[in-house]
Amino acid sequence: MKKMKTTIALMLSASFLTLSGCSMMMDDEEVAEQTPVRPSMNVIDITAQDRAPAKRASNDEESEDQGMDAYGAIGQPPLYSSVQGAYKGRPLTKHIGDYVKNMTQDLIANMEYVNTKTAIGVTHFALLDTDLQQTDLLGRQMAESFVHELHKFRVPVIDFKATEYIRITDAGDFVLSRDYLELSSSLPIEYVLTGTMTKHQGGVLVNARILGMESRAVVASAQMLVPFYVVDALIPSDGSERSGMRDGVKLSRG
């Protein structure tokens, strides 16, 4: 009798375990059905070489000539010239005005006596290895740029080349002149900005200073090396005229 009870108990236990296992399997299937299926993700190790653009097998030399980079974007053209073709080279990111701006800041930093009530005149920069009565296109343009920069600092600048009238001609309408007979001989100029230029290895060394008209005292000074590629970017109006040239620079009286 005890053996039969034991056998029945074992059978009931086995049935309970079987039912429990089925219940657990059903619960797992229900959870699996409720959980959204996510797509598998493939992880790929991308090296720097894989990220770099593949170089085209053909037309590489042609792309380099057109100024294209490795991504196919068009960059700066290899040559840049004016209508006359006087200047050939890459386009510049800076011009002579940027260097004059830095020199003006140096002048303002160590300037004495000059203020918003003292008038300044600006002359052309002379070539240092001459009689100081000769200049070139660089010397003229630097004077024009200094007039602009000084005016930005609210320093009163007097343009002594301005006449008292406007001359109307077939070539155009002008108020500036280089004829001293047409200019005023009495102007309230107390200080003058001038300077010298000399060729240096890699560029032109420019020395700028502000002088007192009566005392001749130096009240401000600045110095900077302007690279040759910036100087050469200045194109003369008449590039065919070779008279008065020295070392490829057209000289003129100051």
Rank of each mutant, 00 (worst) to 15 (best):
K5D: 03
T6I: 09
T6F: 03
I8K: 12
A9L: 13
L10W: 07
S13C: 14
S15M: 14
S20K: 07
S20I: 05
S20N: 10
S20Q: 10
S23Q: 11
S23R: 05
D27F: 09
E29D: 14
T35W: 00
P39D: 10
D45W: 03
D45V: 10
Q49Y: 08
D50R: 02
R51L: 15
P53I: 13
A54S: 08
R56D: 03
S58R: 00
N59I: 00
D60P: 00
G67A: 00
G67I: 01
D69I: 02
D69G: 08
G72R: 03
A73K: 05
Y80P: 01
S82R: 02
Y87E: 02
L92P: 07
K94V: 08
G97Y: 06
D98W: 09
D98H: 15
K101Y: 11
N102A: 11
M103C: 12
M103N: 07
A109K: 14
N110C: 06
E112C: 04
Y113R: 13
T118F: 02
A119I: 06
A119Y: 13
A119H: 11
G121N: 12
F125P: 01
D136M: 06
G139P: 08
Q141L: 10
A143C: 09
E144G: 01
S145A: 12
F146V: 10
F146Y: 15
V147E: 09
R154A: 01
E164V: 00
I168A: 13
D170P: 10
D170F: 01
V175S: 12
V175M: 11
S177C: 07
R178W: 01
R178F: 04
Y180A: 15
E182D: 09
E182W: 00
S185E: 14
P188A: 05
V192H: 03
G195Q: 05
G195E: 04
K199L: 05
H200K: 07
L205V: 01
L205Y: 03
L205R: 02
N207D: 15
L211F: 07
M213L: 08
E214A: 14
S215M: 08
A220S: 15
A220Y: 06
S221Q: 15
A222P: 12
Q223N: 12
Q223S: 13
L225D: 06
D232Y: 04
G239T: 14
D247M: 09
L251C: 02
